[in-house]
Nucleic acid binder design. Structure first.
Length: 442
RNA sequence: GUGGGUGUAGCUCAAUGGCAGAGCAUCUGAUUGUGGUUCAGAGGGUUGUGGGUUCGAGCCCCAUCAUCCACCCCA
């Protein structure tokens, strides 16, 4: 039989133990913060029916959806999920009678997009979503923004800013300036690149798309009115606050900001920014995003309000808002900035129990069992090699403590515990073993 | 989907068109109750793959695959 070159599909990855330990640390921190804010987990299938997924993301995005088919089937009716938000909407519509509202759920799971891979961009990647279903007020939006800030801070990030904008406000700015309705998507797309191409770039691009120069200029003046704190909102209100759509969204942003302030979210971590836009079509209210530019990894957190999406699965929609943490980019960033606590990433093993020779193997096994009984992560040596090799192995794996149990120790009823880091060595009775290990570890 | 860069030992990378190499890692020994340091030695390659040019190709040309970067889009 001919041998097959082992490889994984493009944009998909294997993770060895050293990487998984770091990933799980990140997941654990995020999960903890989700619990802290009272969110509870759900799980849904990796695949959904095409009818569930199609028509929710826009045409470009749909070309990136992986379809799935099994061998006997000629039908092509199910696909891998593209995000966790649409599955949530289906879930809520299906089980609304069994859920308590507001329904606060989190979901940590892989999603699939057939894009060309790049740094921080994969075809299979995890999303960590937290959403609140059933609340239309800014209390919910403030809650998810506050949660995102807390999560990023607990992971060790010191400098970041959650940018906040409002989909309807942006629309109002466009309309007020004279952008035709059918060109609003072009407007969003170009403004979204503001960080990358600057004001002049946006201006140029919009004019190339056929929007009149004076319209673009008027629009740019409004979105780039960067004043401290909430003064941006005051400015916009003075200009066109009497348009109902504009007035409402300005008030919503004020309300959101007030909630954040009362909640004690430090102001350095969020800002209102009219140049931030998000691509997905289903947003209807406040939108959030955190972009990291150094290194240039793009968005590590995004979200917003999507009050109409559940309505695609149910007679009446339910107001919903949420955020998604881009865990893969967060992990890449944490690697780069070295934000992991010292104990993460080496091994889960606390003690390596050596075996002196065949005659003492059973004694070593008993020692290992005693340690495990006491809740200490223990690796028992299973081959027949010199003690020096065993030490070498323990050290290479980063195991902090080695237990030595030779004929000498056995006759004295003790175990020698050696901490590899500094060579500190103690011989203790087996009854005191677990306690001593804990002391050596601390 | 568009444009570009790079593919040589497990890893990082050398090699004017002329004998395929170094460092690190691995394994063995110096060391039969104690790892990291040191010393000595060993293994490891169809130069991503397939064609072409040439007396001769790791090097030049074409194709293909992989990977990275910039777009599009996005986490």
């Amino acid at each position: 039989m001919s041998q097959i070159t082992p490889r994984v599909p493009k944009g998909m990855r294997d993770f060895p133990p050293s990487v998984m330990l770091k990933r799980e640390y990140v997941f654990d921190v995020i999960r903890e913060v989700f619990h802290l804010y009272g969110f509870e987990p759900i799980q849904t299938p990796v695949m959904e029916l095409n009818e569930t997924l199609m028509g929710k993301y826009g045409e470009d995005a749909e070309n990136l959806i992986y379809s799935a088919k099994h061998g006997r089937s000629s039908k092509d009716e199910i696909s891998l999920r593209y995000d966790l938000t649409v599955p949530l909407s289906r879930f809520v519509a299906m089980y609304e009678n069994d859920l308590n509202f507001p329904f606060k759920r989190y979901h940590i799971a892989p999603v699939f997009r057939g894009e060309r891979p790049q740094r921080g961009r994969y075809r299979e990647f995890y999303q960590c979503d937290a959403d609140i279903v059933g609340i239309g007020s800014m209390a919910a939006d403030a809650e998810v923004v506050s949660l995102a800030v807390t999560a990023l801070r607990r992971l060790g990030f010191k400098q970041f800013e959650v940018k906040i904008n409002h989909r309807k406000l942006l629309t109002a700015i466009g309309k007020y300036s004279g952008v035709p309705d059918e060109q609003l998507p072009d407007l969003y797309r170009s403004v979204d690149k503001f960080d990358k191409i600057g004001a002049a770039g946006v201006q140029k691009e919009l004019e190339e798309r056929g929007i009149a120069a004076d319209v673009v200029t008027r629009m740019m003046e409004l979105i780039t009115s960067q004043k401290p704190g909430l003064e941006n909102l005051d400015f916009l209100e003075s200009v066109f606050g009497d348009m109902p759509e504009a007035g409402n969204s300005i008030n919503e942003l004020r309300d959101l900001a007030k909630n954040l302030m009362v909640a004690g979210v430090p102001q350095e971590f969020y800002a209102i920014d009219f140049t931030m836009v998000r691509g997905l079509g289903y947003y209807t209210g406040p939108i959030f995003e955190t972009i990291i530019t150094e290194p240039n990894l793009g968005s590590i957190m995004g979200g917003g309000r999507y009050d109409e999406l559940i309505g695609l699965f149910r007679r009446e929609s339910l107001p919903t808002t949420g955020i998604s943490l881009g865990i893969e980019r967060i992990i890449d960033l944490m690697d780069e900035l070295d934000l992991y606590p010292a104990h993460i990433g080496g091994t889960v093993v606390d003690v390596f129990v050596t075996v002196f020779d065949e005659d003492t193997r059973e004694d070593s096994l008993r020692v290992a069992s005693t340690l495990r009984e006491a809740g200490i992560n223990t690796e028992l040596y299973m081959e027949d090699k010199k003690l020096g090799k065993q030490f070498n192995l323990a050290d290479k794996k980063g195991i902090p403590i080695v237990a030595v149990l030779g004929p000498d120790e056995i006759t004295r009823g003790v175990v020698t515990l050696r901490r590899l880091k500094d060579g500190k060595e103690l011989s203790v009775e087996q009854a005191l073993m677990a306690k001593t290990v804990r002391e050596l570890l601390s």
